[in-house]
Every structure is written in C-alpha cells, then in structure tokens.
C-alpha cells in the first residue's frame, strides 16, 4: 500500500468557468487510510475539485497531488489505483447493470468475482436489468458495486448515496467501514450529515470555492458554541463581562446563554461560584455546526457570491 502519509494534497487550487469562479484557492489534505468528509453548500466547488483530481478538468492554478502523482499528467496510471462514483451515475441504456460492472472492471484489469457477487447481494441489485429500466437508486448501486469491488487504494465518492433508501444507506456505511479496515482511503463528498458523522475521521468544509474549515469533528465542535441553561442559588453578576458569552438572558436566578466552547471552563467557574442548583449544557448539533459554516455567505459577502 501507499506509504505516503497523505493521499490527496491540494493547495491554492483555482478554476474558472468563464466568469464563474468555481474554485478560488481551495486547500484540501486527505491522510492515507482515513475517511475524509468533503462538505459545503450547493455550488461550493466539491464536484469541480473532484473532477480536477480525476483528470477530467484542468486546474487554472494551484497545486494538486494525488497518490503522489499529478492528476492531469499521470491520469491513466493513477486511475489504476483509484475508484470513482459520481453523484449521478449515467449508464448506457441498452447495457445491463451486470454488463456495465464487468466492463468497468475489465478496463481496470479485472475484478474479484466473489467480491462483486457479495456486493450485488448486499446491495440487493438485479444485474440483469437493462440500465434504461433502473431507478435512480439502482443506477447509483451499479456505480457503487463497480467501485467497491475494484480494490483501489483511494475511493473518490461524490454524493454516492443520493437516491439510496435508508436500508441501502446502512449497507453503504458498512462497506465504507470495511474498505477503511482494509487500509483504503476514502474521499467522501456528502450532504447527509449523519453519514458524515458516522463515517468520517476528518472533514473539510468549503464555500464559494474556498476552504473554510478542516479538522476532526471534535475539533470543529470545539470551534462552536455550547448552550448553557442553569438555575442558580442567587442572581449572578459579572457574567456579561466574561469573554465568550453570547445571547445572555437572566431572569432572577435563571440563566441562559451561548458560550464559545473554549471559554466553557471560565463560565462554569463563575456559575459554581454563585452556586448551581441545576444545569443543562448542550453541545452544538452537527446541523448547527454546518449551518454556521454554510450560512456565512451573507456575512462575508465575497464577489464569488455572484456565482451565477
């Protein structure tokens, strides 16, 4: 397997489509052996980044390295070592799903038939149907089986589960975990936060073609606020002066506030100093965490906000 500590390294990547700045200095680093979540609002540039990594598009500027190769120049050699599932798998209408899987496998130099059979069973996919007759979810399964059966070093998945039912979503998660156990690296772009939470070791959040955050989920949580509600023995004083406290509401001895997570310690000290009768604290939900990153669009209005 690849001994290089990073499977994907991108820095300062830019790509324009005419007047649209699809990528505007994007950074991304995926460590070997991890499942890396790639998140961001619609039109943020995730698919564009992935298509550059696959050598389908050429970057305007910036660095991109994939398994220690150049995604554009070394495309064919690199593709032996990676597998890819697009968000909308389009198939040749008059080929059956089984034929498509075998064809893609043969182009890679053959796939393990047992692995394929096992995946077909787990995804409950009928390989005899003509691609024209597959539903959206079943088309997606054809792409997934072809990719997962192929034993690559790196799996690039762009919203791979769009259209899958919850049962199949669970099967997909098991498969990704298995891939990780077998030592493979996964780059997973997704809008399904529970999927990201269940699978990803680290995530990168992009917006308007730029990386806004990157790290483990715990680290990202740390960057947000915890909401605290407390019943105290007496009315508190000086809470408002503490740094990291927001939206403070005091009604008699009842306190509600939002606290920047790194400042939680100081705030709790202050509360216990007054005397705590009851206390609930809530870490931010994943939704809140992402919404905060997704929504800043309006606050820091970049010219790329004019992304058509």
């Amino acid at each position: 397997m690849n001994s290089d500590p990073t499977a994907v390294t991108i820095s300062g990547l830019t790509k324009n489509f005419g007047p649209t700045h699809a990528l505007d200095g994007l950074d991304l680093s995926v460590r070997t052996g991890e499942v890396h979540g790639f998140l961001g609002p619609n039109g943020a540039g995730k698919t564009t980044t992935i298509r550059i990594l696959l050598g389908l598009l050429r970057a305007d500027s910036g660095e991109a390295r994939l398994l220690d190769g150049d995604p554009w120049h070394d495309a064919t050699e690199l593709h032996r070592r990676i597998a890819y599932v697009p968000g909308d798998v389009t198939l040749w209408p008059n080929l059956s799903g089984g034929e498509v899987i075998d064809l893609l496998g043969r182009l890679r130099g053959g796939i393990d038939q047992h692995r394929k059979e096992d995946l077909l069973r787990r995804f409950d996919l009928d390989p005899r149907k003509k691609a024209r007759t597959y539903s959206k979810g079943n088309r997606q399964k054809v792409g997934l089986v072809a990719a997962l059966a192929s034993e690559p070093e790196l799996l690039v998945l762009d919203e791979p589960t769009s259209g899958l039912d919850p049962l199949m979503e669970e099967t997909f998660r098991e498969c990704v975990r298995q891939q990780q156990r077998e030592g493979r690296t996964v780059l997973l772009s997704s809008h399904i936060l529970s999927e990201v939470e269940a699978l990803c070791d680290r995530v990168t959040i992009v917006r308007s073609g730029r990386t806004v955050e990157s790290g483990t989920l715990a680290e990202l949580r740390h960057l947000t606020r915890t909401s605290v509600t407390a019943e105290l023995s007496a009315a508190p004083e000086g809470l408002a002066e503490l740094s990291g406290v927001h939206d403070l509401e005091i009604t008699g001895t009842h306190v509600r506030c939002e606290v920047d997570t790194p400042h939680l310690d100081g705030v709790l000290r202050e509360l216990t100093a007054v005397g705590v009768r009851s206390l609930t604290s809530q870490p931010p939900t994943l939704e809140e965490l992402f919404l905060r990153h997704y929504e800043q669009r309006s606050e820091t209005s970049t010219p790329e906000g004019a992304n058509r």
Partner: peptide, 15 residues
Amino acid sequence: SAGRVEPLLGGTPLS
C-alpha cells in the same frame, strides 16, 4: 455530453 465518459475516463485507466 450524456456524462457517460466520466466513469470510464475518471474511474478506469482508460486514456
């Protein structure tokens, strides 16, 4: 334009 080359060129060693 139907998007059917992408899995071939992006996901297999086909040049």
